[in-house]
């Protein structure tokens, strides 16, 4: 699905080069839920942006769906959820979700049908005619996820989509996201700062460390696909969380 081989990316800045990604190799298979976790500045966003063709690696190879990220972007192979919901204030929730569909040239009838479907998927049915400012932050973020789901992209790239939300809302959205993933069979790449979130959601956890940004550990989760919220108290969960924490600490010790 997504394959990175010895990926390198150096930003040329006024203060000299910043080595954001160094020798990053990773394979994400179809239907996986992969979380990226690591301290600030370790290149999580940059890696995700490389997959989305929003950033261009200075070395190495990356393919998305077997083609270059650019080709994947042009064939609308992925939906990207940014940290901020980024809904247009002049469009209703329905209008916002319709936006990419209009751009991609879906028919009017198809648009309406899809909007209704994804709104139901994120439990926002009935809010189609509301404006973004009439919704809470969590609902806005759900609407932005719905927008990324509305067109048929197999891949969902999410950069700290719940970073700005409080823990309770976040728990709820995490649960919803898992359901959604199970129902839609998408491949998800998910950036987060939260260890419990990463462990709860993922089939694979990628631990990264900064200066230069690199992968220090890849953890295959032994947790079952079916995950009620209280799985977070199970020994398996705590063990994975422990390993992630160890990986993060090891990354820090290298500094």
């Amino acid at each position: 699905m997504i394959e990175a081989q010895n990926l390198d990316l150096t930003f040329q800045t006024n203060d000299g080069p910043v080595h954001a990604l160094k020798d990053v190799s990773l394979q994400i298979d179809k239907g996986e839920f992969v979380s990226f976790i690591g301290p600030s500045g370790c290149g999580k966003t940059t890696f995700l942006r490389c997959m989305a063709d929003l950033e261009h690696p200075t070395g190495g190879e990356i393919t998305v769906n077997g083609v270059s990220p650019e080709a994947a972007r042009k064939s609308r192979a992925y939906g990207y959820v940014f940290q901020a919901a980024g809904l247009y204030p002049w469009r209703t929730i329905g209008g916002n979700i319709r936006l990419p569909l209009e751009i991609m040239g879906y028919s009017k009838a198809d648009q309406s049908e899809r909007v209704a479907r994804v709104l139901e998927l994120v439990e926002l049915s009935g809010f189609e005619k509301k404006y973004p400012w009439q919704l809470s932050g969590g609902m806005q973020q759900r609407a932005s996820i719905a927008r990324a789901l509305a067109f048929d992209a197999d891949i969902l790239l999410m950069d700290e989509p719940f970073g700005a939300l409080d823990e309770i809302v976040r728990d709820h959205l995490n649960e919803q996201l898992l359901h959604l993933w199970a129902r839609t069979q998408k491949t998800i790449a998910f950036v987060t700062h939260s260890i419990p979130e990463a462990v709860y959601l993922s089939t694979k956890i990628v631990v990264m460390s900064p200066r230069p940004g690199r992968i220090t550990d890849v953890i295959e989760s032994p947790l079952p696909k079916e995950r009620p919220l209280d799985i977070r108290d199970s020994p398996e969960f705590l063990e994975v969380a422990h390993r992630v924490r160890e990986g993060l600490r090891a990354g820090h010790l290298d500094d």
Binding site: R49, L54, R73, Y78, Y80, G86, I103
Partner: peptide, 21 residues
């Protein structure tokens, strides 16, 4: 930048970017 990137992920044409954003 985020709004422009977002349009890019949808592969929006320059004219779509103009009229819609």
């Amino acid at each position: 930048a985020m709004q422009l990137d977002q349009m890019r992920t949808w592969n929006a044409s320059p004219s779509q970017m103009f009229w819609r954003l």
